[in-house]
């Protein structure tokens, strides 16, 4: 990456959104409330949301409109499209990366 590389971030012309605590695979993160979960995770540097089911390559949000299904994560135990899911205080987000790592370890 080049020197002026910068993360995914909010347009500074808009008022900042208050952040709330959520957990991602058990770790606490502070994300902007009401923001699309997939976008908020990208802003927190978490672009990888899942692994492809056969080749296991990293995947992240792609269409942001509920079509591609690449942004699927589990929120409080339910499978949701994170691009369409607003950030709520206390939500528990799990990616399937963990399970794969665990499966891999036990295999």
């Amino acid at each position: 990456m080049t020197q002026d590389a910068a993360g995914w971030r909010a347009d500074p012309a808009h008022p900042a959104v208050p952040c709330v605590a959520v957990t991602l695979d058990g770790q606490t993160l502070h994300l902007p409330e009401g923001q699309s979960l997939a976008v908020a995770l990208a802003m927190a540097g978490q672009l990888e949301l899942r692994r492809s089911p056969t080749a296991g390559t990293p995947r992240g949000m792609f269409c942001l409109m509920g079509s591609c299904q690449e942004c699927l994560v589990h929120v409080d135990g339910n499978a949701v499209l994170s691009c369409l899911e607003p950030v709520r205080a206390g939500m528990s987000v799990e990616r399937d990366l963990l399970h794969r790592a665990r499966d891999g370890a036990s295999a």
């Binding site: 590389a5 976008v39 672009l47 949000m61 269409c63 942001l64």
Partner: peptide
Amino acid sequence: TLPGVIGLAAATILLKAHAVVPGGP
């Protein structure tokens, strides 16, 4: 399929609905 690659139309949603810019450049 790499994370960090999004659709062009998706980028309009990112900018308009979320007021967020993709990681640069």
